[in-house]
Nucleic acid binder design. Structure first.
Lengths: 350, 350
DNA sequence: CTGAAAGCGCTTACAG
DNA sequence: CTGAAAGCGCTTACAG
């Protein structure tokens, strides 16, 4: 671990020597101080140029007891939703002069604990984390107690009391279901995810809210749990359509589940958007390009990432922790995978 | 930029004081030296525990003039191919005790130059980069000349002489086209990408090789350039089928182009895999779940990333640069988007 | 087996 | 306007 010494780079001392000044002066020109005479600064700049000087931020940070590195721990980078979240965080960080140390935990809580340790040792200024399923909260709290700012994003660790930024899953799922109800559906399934996932519980809550607001009784049998993946979605929709009294539509835990469900429907000769309506969640890039294009709910993923970064940056700057979860807005995007139920269309035509 | 000083963590000195030893001794137990007596080590360990000590790797690295941070610069993280590549690199790095500093350049050469500078200043041990289109090679060479190991991955910067690891694009595209020829196609298009992209040129070369090996004359009109995206693929296939004498099949620059092409075909009432064959490249996660499932070429993306990481790690450890590009294998995955041409099937049936 | 000292590349008062 | 000195948290010879 760690590299052996390499041909060493020029230091501030080398510059000072070449420019005929002290290293304090070099340091001053480095920070653009007005204290140093124009002519001297030119000389120093010239020396840097000549020696190919590169600032050693690590050394500076050690001296200043600070850091401009931030840990970014992502639960599943292969999931396009998290990819976009990571990109949002990364952009915001660079824009603020910070740089992200990446770890992809792949939903493995042990790996998460390990990388958290590495990142902590690295002396980062803070950590943004989308916690893996079954996260070890203790590790996170140990780090937080040591004084390191941490913000959780996307997945709420309610027990932890850690600052949280996420999208409004409940409201988002509510508008999704209301869209379907507005179209004339009354028997609506919920596909994918597990009740062990906070996000799923929040989305299911929105689903139930919409049903009850419209006087539709909730039927547990219309919730089909599955892995939050394409193949999970396929399996979930299968159990739905095999029901004695199947629904005419379903909202999905996320877009991958939705896409998988649509494939499975088509395999069964059922056309999504005509014979059966599907609504996703997340608006991943694939959603707009799906066949049929997917109706879905977006939580403005990239902006959400940026928001999480900003909350962390504020914390690092010494701001008090936000007193409540920071919840981003959610918006329905109607495309072609949802439509009035077939019976309804027939009726209208008649 | 940079955080203000925070409640400072315990240092080796605090530990030494509490354990009643010198800081040298603490450092020794930190590196598990056998020099220190068991009883002393216990005392030191206890003190660390009591003070919640966290090793400051940055300080250690400064002293040792080395680093265990590696820069990972990705040209387009939102593209699932690069996501998987990044995950492969990241995994290999952690496994070796290194940690990746991430930058997503989004194909913006200016952004690439900027983040390269940040990463360089951060004192990384080396850099793995999938160069953005129109990369500024000079920046890369400046950094390399300063003695920092760099490996390019996926996109060859031939002029740079930098170590390169990539997949065998030419061989991969050759087997893709030969698969189509074997199925009975003779008029085959190439969809997506631009000749300004090294990867596209390599793939087109494989396309031409296969054609000429089978006595099919290459027709420039059968190459439709487009952005390497889903919508690019849609546009490219459109120009193809609008040709007076359209092809019966096409290989695509990558899977996103292929998926976009299939959508467009379906919009035109043409069924991919029955009326028109499509072969992709990369085997992104979406490929297997596409409708129809996509025949494609894989370059074992994740392993390729790991390979790139290992080449860099070797360089960091002082190994000489590989004398030739490191080219990973490539494999055809036949799924349902390719089949014999319709005419052929008719003929067989007759 | 353990301690005192020097030094990694910086920054920041403090003098002058 | 510029220089000498101390110190950030470590490690590594070198003594003892």
């Amino acid at each position: 671990m760690g590299a052996p010494p390499r041909k060493s780079r020029a230091t501030i001392i080398d510059i000072a020597r070449l420019a005929g000044v002290s290293k304090s002066t070099v340091s001053l020109v480095l920070k653009n101080s007005t204290l140093v005479k124009a002519e001297t600064r030119e000389r120093v700049l010239g020396a840097m140029q000549a020696l190919g000087y590169v600032y050693n931020r690590g050394a500076a940070n050690l001296r200043l007891a600070r850091s401009n590195i931030v840990g970014m721990v992502i639960s599943d980078l292969m999931n396009p939703f998290f990819t976009e979240l990571a990109v949002g965080i990364e952009e915001a960080l660079y824009r603020a002069g910070y740089v992200p140390l990446l770890a992809n935990t792949g939903e493995d809580p042990e790996r998460q604990t390990r990388v958290l340790q590495s990142i902590f040792e690295q002396g980062v200024a803070g950590i943004v984390i989308s916690p893996s399923n079954r996260s070890d909260v203790a590790t996170l709290l140990d780090i937080a107690r040591a004084g390191l700012p941490i913000v959780t994003v996307t997945r709420r660790l309610a027990e932890s009391g850690l600052p949280y930024v996420g999208q409004d899953n409940t409201a988002g799922e509510r508008i999704a279901v209301e869209h379907l109800i507005g179209l004339g559906h009354r028997r609506i399934g919920f596909l994918g995810g597990y009740a062990t996932m906070a996000t799923q519980r929040e989305r299911v809550a929105g689903y139930k809210e919409a049903l009850s607001a419209h006087g539709i009784v909730f039927e547990p049998i219309l919730i089909a749990e599955s892995p939050p993946t394409r193949s999970g979605g396929g399996a979930a929709v299968k159990t739905m359509i095999d029901l004695p009294d199947p629904p005419t539509a379903a909202v999905c835990f996320n877009d991958m589940v939705a896409v998988g469900a649509i494939r499975e429907l088509s395999r069964q000769g059922i056309r999504a958007g005509r014979d059966f309506s599907i609504v996703g969640f997340d608006d991943i890039a694939e959603a707009a390009h799906n066949a049929p294009p997917l109706t879905t709910v977006t939580g403005e993923t990239r902006q959400l990432g940026a928001e999480a970064a900003h909350v962390l940056l504020d914390l690092i700057a010494g701001a008090p922790a936000p007193s409540a979860p920071v919840i981003g807005p959610t918006r329905l995007i109607v495309r072609e995978s949802s439509a009035a139920p077939a019976s309804e269309r027939t009726r209208l035509r008649a």
